[in-house]
Simulated scan of single mutants.
Amino acid sequence: MKGVLLVNLGSPDSPTPKDVKPYLDEFLMDERVIDVPKWLRILLVRGIILQTRPKRSAEAYSKIWWEEGSPLIVISERFTTKVRSKTALPVALGMRYGSMSIKKALQELKGKGVDEVLLVPLYPHYAMSSYETVVVKTMEVQKASFPEIRITTLPAFYKNDKYIKVLSEAIASGLKDIDYDHILFSYHGIPERHIRKSDPTSFHCKIDGSCCQTNSVAHHSCYRHQCYDTTERVKAFLNLPDDKVSSSFQSRLAGDPWLKPYTDYEFERLAKEGKKNLAVITPAFVSDCLETLEEIAMEGKEQFQEAGGAEYKHIPCLNDSDPWVELMVEWIEDWNKKEVLPV
Rank of each mutant, 00 (worst) to 15 (best):
M1F: 07
G3S: 07
V4A: 11
V4P: 03
V7T: 05
G10V: 14
P12K: 02
P15M: 08
P17L: 08
K18F: 06
L28S: 01
E31K: 14
V33A: 00
V33W: 01
V36P: 11
K38Y: 10
L40T: 12
I42A: 13
L43M: 14
L43A: 12
G47Y: 02
G47L: 12
I49S: 03
T52I: 10
K63D: 04
W65M: 11
E67N: 15
L72C: 03
T80E: 03
V83S: 10
T87Q: 03
G94N: 01
M95R: 06
Y97P: 00
G98Q: 09
I102K: 08
K104Y: 00
K104H: 03
Q107S: 14
K112W: 09
L118G: 08
L118V: 09
L119N: 04
V120K: 06
P121V: 06
Y131T: 04
V134S: 05
V135F: 08
E140Q: 15
V141L: 07
V141R: 10
Q142D: 13
A144I: 10
I149S: 09
A156K: 07
N160L: 07
I164G: 01
K165R: 04
V166M: 11
S168K: 01
A172F: 11
S173I: 15
D179T: 09
H182Y: 11
H182V: 04
F185K: 12
F185L: 07
F185G: 12
G189I: 06
R196F: 15
D199G: 00
T201D: 02
I207L: 14
I207Y: 10
G209T: 08
H219Q: 03
Y223K: 13
C227P: 06
C227T: 06
Y228C: 10
V234S: 07
F237I: 14
F237H: 15
L238P: 09
P241D: 11
D243A: 13
K244Q: 14
V245P: 02
F249M: 13
S251T: 10
L253G: 12
G255A: 14
D264F: 15
E268A: 11
A271P: 09
K272M: 02
E273Q: 09
N277P: 01
L278F: 06
I281A: 05
F285H: 05
T292P: 00
E294D: 13
M298E: 07
E299S: 14
G300Y: 12
E302W: 01
Q303G: 14
F304G: 00
E306S: 09
I315K: 06
L318R: 00
E326D: 11
M328R: 07
I332W: 02
K337N: 13
L341H: 03
